[in-house]
């Protein structure tokens, strides 16, 4: 480890705010770019499956 203590690591020689805010923002935005498409994919699958079931049921009733 380059730093002597945890508090020095967090403080980063007085530049902690710049460093940590940059990393936090980047990781947060990247996490969103995984999480949101993943939820969308799941929701799309679910919605299309429901739609398909409805279609199949309707055809069944008509027959």
């Amino acid at each position: 480890m380059y730093f002597d203590s945890l508090s020095e690591f967090i403080n980063m020689g007085g530049q902690g705010l710049y460093v940590w805010s940059s990393f936090a923002l980047s990781l947060l935005l990247m996490a969103f770019n995984i999480l949101l498409p993943w939820l969308k994919l799941k929701a799309t699958r679910k919605q299309l499956a429901r739609q398909l079931r409805r279609e199949v049921n309707q055809q069944g009733e008509q027959a």
């Binding site: 380059y2 980063m12 020689g13 530049q15 710049y18």
Partner: peptide, 17 residues
């Protein structure tokens, strides 16, 4: 990059950005 890389002698730790 955050914990082990040495700090830049001109920019200090903000170089880690």
């Amino acid at each position: 990059g955050l914990a082990y890389a040495p700090m830049d002698y001109q920019q200090g730790n903000s170089f880690r950005i």
